[in-house]
Amino acid sequence: QVALSRTQVCGILREELFQGDAFHQSDTHIFIIMGASGDLAKKKIYPTIWWLFRDGLLPENTFIVGYARSRLTVADIRKQSEPFFKATPEEKLKLEDFFARNSYVAGQYDDAASYQRLNSHMNALHLGSQANRLFYLALPPTVYEAVTKNIHESCMSQIGWNRIIVEKPFGRDLQSSDRLSNHISSLFREDQIYRIDHYLGKEMVQNLMVLRFANRIFGPIWNRDNIACVILTFKEPFGTEGRGGYFDEFGIIRDVMQNHLLQMLCLVAMEKPASTNSDDVRDEKVKVLKCISEVQANNVVLGQYVGNPDGEGEATKGYLDDPTVPRGSTTATFAAVVLYVENERWDGVPFILRCGKALNERKAEVRLQFHDVAGDIFHQQCKRNELVIRVQPNEAVYTKMMTKKPGMFFNPEESELDLTYGNRYKNVKLPDAYERLILDVFCGSQMHFVRSDELREAWRIFTPLLHQIELEKPKPIPYIYGSRGPTEADELMKRVGFQYEGTYKWVNPHKL
């Protein structure tokens, strides 16, 4: 086992960053958080920038500027975001240094004079007029057009580079997404736009490419001749908990499936790229999406959770019991969808996408189930092999396979070949997804960000279904809070070829 401390991990990262040409360590950078008073800024962006600063992973002359409508001070920003920093008493001095680099400007999102004030403020910072500028839009999409237009007109660096990070949702359907994309691309070049999907920053999602293309053993079996089906799962054990009003506007397909799960599907299904260059990788992902037809209604199961009468606390409440959810809402909190990649490698292999709230566990994984062994000599005792990439929690890679049961006879039983990170790298604290992705933006690497043509294809696949749901308002199937979801989803999976045995229990190697 390799035991690495946080300091050692960050030392390795620093070495990698400083050796590259793309990370300008000594240049002045300004990180501007648009929507600095909001939840995302408070819980994710400010803490992430602090962790990067604490670990010495930001360029040395980096300033952080918050911008929002609320009249706040840096002290206010500190008060609301610091509880999420997880700072230790030993880091007190470092924390003071961090907040000394912070400033805040209040202004409207659609007022040109406010942006001119913001620009004057940035120019007044040390070497601010020639600094590289990175704008993070932690804002609702309704203000994107006004904000990007004003940034472009008043706040661009004339000497350094300018980059803009856009948070999902990128529209509600193909038409609104196209409108937003066309607007942003009329102001910024594609190499300046970073559409963030934080799932692409997760260690195991990034590991998929290495697993596939750096190991000879997987190449020959990664196709329709050997793989019976692919299941991509995202499960949350909690409901909307008072935030249903926002969720109800989008629903589970827009929230998770059309982005996170579809991105994971691309990494499983794509061909080997010409290189690890950002556009070479994204070219292959677009090719996969172009091979997927629009979702067919007979390959869809929609569910909505109801309270568990035997549960406790939140578990007793259904989705419609959330006071922020519109009365009688038919918005799905669970969806199972089957897609097919219609190309030579994957023809006929079902890709089953499942996601839901208020389920029995927290889990995100990719599961490849292989065909049955031909010419069975073990009297149907063999179960199908599976390769599982567990994204969260407890990152893991393992192969479910058959071995001989101890004893006199040739009785096979299920076991696993474990390729888990935790076994080799004991207690290594890896940077989280937002840390990686923000560092990628500083480096100018777009590999783990969504390109406009990729986004367009993703919406093309799901828009007809979303429009049909909005028009017909089908009643989702009720499922109990804390269950596996509607049984109809299991029946759909069985119908397209997935075999669920229920006889195997994964042993978490992190707890051995």
Rank of each mutant, 00 (worst) to 15 (best):
Asp255Arg: 04
Val256Thr: 09
Gln258Leu: 05
Gln258Tyr: 03
Gln258Ile: 04
Leu261Phe: 05
Leu265Asn: 00
Leu265Ser: 05
Leu267Lys: 05
Val268His: 00
Ala269Tyr: 06
Pro273Ser: 05
Ala274Ser: 15
Thr276Tyr: 00
Ser278Ile: 00
Ser278Leu: 03
Ser278His: 10
Asp279Pro: 08
Asp279Ser: 11
Lys285Ala: 00
Val286Asp: 07
Lys287Leu: 07
Lys287Asp: 10
Lys287Thr: 08
Val288Glu: 01
Leu289Thr: 06
Cys291Tyr: 13
Ile292Pro: 02
Glu294Val: 12
Glu294Pro: 12
Val295Ala: 15
Gln296Asp: 14
Gln296Thr: 14
Asn298Gly: 14
Asn298Leu: 11
Asn299Glu: 15
Val301Pro: 06
Val301Cys: 12
Leu302Val: 10
Gln304Lys: 04
Tyr305Thr: 00
Val306Asp: 13
Val306Met: 15
Asn308Gln: 12
Pro309Gly: 11
Asp310Asn: 15
Gly311Ile: 10
Gly313Arg: 11
Glu314Ser: 14
Glu314Asn: 12
Gly318Val: 00
Gly318Tyr: 03
Tyr319Ile: 00
Leu320Val: 11
Leu320Gln: 09
Leu320Ala: 13
Asp322Ile: 05
Pro323Gly: 12
Pro323Cys: 13
Pro323Gln: 11
Pro323Ile: 14
Thr324Ser: 14
Val325Gly: 04
Val325Glu: 01
Val325Gln: 04
Arg327Leu: 14
Gly328Tyr: 13
Thr330Phe: 12
Thr331Asn: 12
Thr333His: 01
Thr333Phe: 02
Thr333Gly: 02
Thr333Arg: 03
Phe334Glu: 01
Ala336Pro: 02
Ala336Thr: 15
Val337Thr: 15
Val338Thr: 13
Val338Ala: 15
Val338Gly: 09
Glu342Thr: 12
Asn343Ile: 03
Asn343Glu: 05
Gly348Ser: 10
Val349Tyr: 02
Val349Asp: 04
Val349Gln: 04
Pro350Ala: 00
Phe351Gln: 00
Ile352Lys: 00
Leu353Tyr: 02
Leu353Trp: 00
Arg354Cys: 03
Arg354His: 06
Cys355Thr: 12
Leu359Tyr: 01
Asn360His: 06
Asn360Trp: 00
Asn360Met: 01
Glu361Trp: 00
Arg362Asp: 00
Val366Phe: 08
Arg367Cys: 01
Arg367Gln: 05
Arg367Thr: 02
Leu368His: 03
Phe370Gln: 00
His371Thr: 12
Asp372Phe: 01
Asp372Leu: 01
Asp372Thr: 06
Asp372Ala: 08
Val373Cys: 10
Val373Phe: 05
Gly375Ala: 13
His379Gln: 12
Gln381Val: 12
Cys382Tyr: 13
Lys383Phe: 10
Lys383Asn: 14
Arg384Thr: 05
Glu386Ala: 07
Leu387Asn: 03
Ile389Thr: 05
Arg390Thr: 08
Val391Ser: 03
Pro393Leu: 04
Pro393Gly: 12
Asn394Ile: 06
Glu395Arg: 05
Glu395Trp: 03
Ala396Met: 04
Val397Glu: 00
Val397Arg: 04
Tyr398Val: 00
Tyr398Met: 00
Lys400Met: 01
Lys400Leu: 03
Met401Asn: 02
Met401Asp: 03
Met402Cys: 11
Lys404Ser: 00
Lys404His: 01
Lys404Pro: 05
Lys405Asn: 14
Pro406Arg: 08
Met408Cys: 05
Phe409Thr: 15
Phe409Met: 14
Phe410Leu: 14
Phe410Ala: 11
Pro412Asp: 03
Glu413Pro: 02
Glu413Val: 13
Glu414Arg: 08
Ser415Leu: 01
Glu416Lys: 02
Glu416Leu: 00
Leu417Ala: 04
Leu419Gly: 06
Leu419Lys: 06
Tyr421Ile: 12
Tyr421Ser: 03
Tyr421Thr: 03
Tyr421Glu: 00
Gly422His: 11
Asn423Gly: 08
Asn423Gln: 13
Asn423Asp: 15
Asn423Phe: 11
Arg424Trp: 00
Arg424Tyr: 06
Tyr425Ala: 06
Asn427Lys: 09
Asn427Trp: 08
Val428Lys: 12
Pro431Lys: 06
Asp432Cys: 12
Asp432Phe: 09
Glu435Met: 09
Glu435Asn: 11
Arg436Gly: 07
Leu437Met: 07
Leu437Pro: 03
Ile438Trp: 03
Leu439Gln: 06
Asp440Tyr: 04
Val441Leu: 05
Val441Ser: 08
Val441Pro: 08
Gly444Phe: 01
Ser445Ile: 08
Gln446Thr: 09
Gln446Glu: 00
Met447Asp: 04
Met447Ser: 03
His448Ile: 01
His448Asp: 08
Phe449Lys: 02
Val450Asn: 03
Val450Ala: 10
Arg451Ala: 04
Ser452Cys: 09
Leu455Asn: 09
Glu457Ile: 07
Thr463Pro: 04
Thr463Ile: 01
Thr463Glu: 07
Leu465Gln: 07
Leu465Thr: 10
Leu466Asn: 05
His467Arg: 15
His467Lys: 13
Gln468Phe: 13
Gln468Ile: 10
Gln468Arg: 14
Leu471Phe: 11
Lys473His: 14
Lys475Met: 14
Pro476Trp: 01
Pro476Thr: 12
Ile477Cys: 08
Pro478Gln: 14
Ile480Ser: 13
Gly482Cys: 05
Ser483His: 07
Arg484Ser: 03
Arg484Lys: 04
Gly485Arg: 04
Thr487Asn: 11
Thr487His: 14
Glu488Arg: 10
Ala489Val: 10
Asp490Met: 11
Leu492Glu: 07
Met493Pro: 06
Met493Cys: 15
Lys494Val: 12
Lys494Asp: 13
Gln499Ile: 13
Gln499Tyr: 13
Tyr500Pro: 01
Gly502Val: 07
Tyr504Pro: 05
Lys505Val: 15
Lys505Ile: 12
Lys505Ala: 15
Trp506Val: 03
